[in-house]
Computed example of a mutant assay.
Amino acid sequence: MGSGNVKKGMIAFLVPLPSILFYLSFQSGDPQSWSTSTLWAWCYHHPLLLLNLLFFFNVNLLFWLIALIQSSHWMIDPYWTVIPVMLVHYYASHPLGQYHWWRSRMVILLTWVWSIRLIHNYLRREKWQWGAREDWRFTDLSHQYGRRWWWASFFAIYVPHQVFLIGLSLPFYVIHSVNRPFGIWDLVATVMCISGIVIAYIADTQLYNYESRNKAVVPILEKGLWYYCRHPNYFGEQMWWWGLVVFAWNLGHGWTFIGALANTMCLAYVTKLVEDRMLKQDSRAEAYRLYQKTTSVWLPWFKSSPLGLQCKDA
């Protein structure tokens, strides 16, 4: 393990400390003094605003400044998998929290499983190195913005991540704000979340095996879950977030779907970027065009017959 990898690993573990230490100091304070302490009283009565402020200063500003120093925006990628875990514990431990114990523990456990799955996939894909490369979409944006990228990156990368992550995590807030008995819809939501995690894990593992062994021989991955849709990993990820929405909907707060909907729309755009990138590769373009014609985008479904398509075209 190189010194650069160790250094980036240390940075990754240290960067959330400002928010963690601040919140722990708030938690360890005397509740009786909150009425006389303006700061602690504000933290107590405005959990969502506090969360957004901590995110803005600790993630948006700090991560951005570190990225400018390192000339790489790699850190937001692994932290996409860590921040939801921190958010669910924040809501569960806030003094204003009131919730059904079993529902809370189920969601916390599922969030940890989701996070471990995703961080494992990130490290496996990056050959167990921290920050070996930044997301290719950020690199493409840097070429588009040129010299303006140093400041434009703040608004193109970090501000949207705050909107998405806090929006997606709104069901965590509802789950820890409403205390109702655990019911059948909670079971439905649990099954959706587990199914999403399992599907995403299988799809990512199949993609990793393909990239490692067969990419040079087979132009596109068209086996396993990838036989039934072109982006099964995205489908599994969406099932996870929409499963959380079902938890919140069951508690009377269906409005929290806005975070999952925004993420789905963003993922639709990312899907287009990924497929356009595939079509730019001469060795794979023809095979991928046929794959697009015969295979569903996200929802797993039976393939269309290439012969049938040719008859329709004729």
Rank of each mutant, 00 (worst) to 15 (best):
residue 183 G to N: 15
residue 91 Y to N: 08
residue 95 P to C: 11
residue 215 K to Q: 01
residue 305 S to Y: 01
residue 238 Q to A: 12
residue 131 G to I: 04
residue 185 W to M: 15
residue 31 P to L: 12
residue 124 R to V: 02
residue 25 S to R: 12
residue 196 G to K: 10
residue 135 D to E: 01
residue 232 P to K: 12
residue 59 V to K: 13
residue 59 V to Q: 12
residue 297 V to P: 01
residue 177 S to F: 09
residue 82 V to S: 05
residue 16 P to W: 14
residue 73 H to T: 06
residue 165 L to T: 12
residue 189 A to V: 04
residue 293 K to I: 00
residue 226 W to F: 15
residue 242 W to H: 03
residue 158 Y to N: 11
residue 217 V to N: 11
residue 114 W to S: 05
residue 282 D to P: 00
residue 99 Y to G: 00
residue 141 L to K: 02
residue 295 T to D: 05
residue 61 L to D: 13
residue 90 Y to W: 09
residue 28 S to P: 01
residue 306 P to F: 11
residue 206 Q to C: 07
residue 6 V to F: 11
residue 134 E to D: 11
residue 103 R to L: 11
residue 41 A to L: 00
residue 229 C to Y: 12
residue 63 F to R: 03
residue 74 W to Q: 06
residue 80 W to Q: 07
residue 184 I to V: 12
residue 100 H to N: 15
residue 265 M to S: 06
residue 124 R to Q: 10
residue 167 G to L: 06
residue 153 S to Y: 11
residue 47 P to S: 05
residue 58 N to Y: 05
residue 133 R to V: 04
residue 266 C to S: 04
residue 275 E to F: 07
residue 303 K to I: 03
residue 65 L to D: 00
residue 301 W to D: 05
residue 314 A to Y: 05
residue 132 A to Q: 09
residue 18 P to T: 08
residue 126 E to S: 05
residue 32 Q to D: 13
residue 163 V to P: 02
residue 206 Q to P: 04
residue 151 W to R: 02
residue 172 F to S: 07
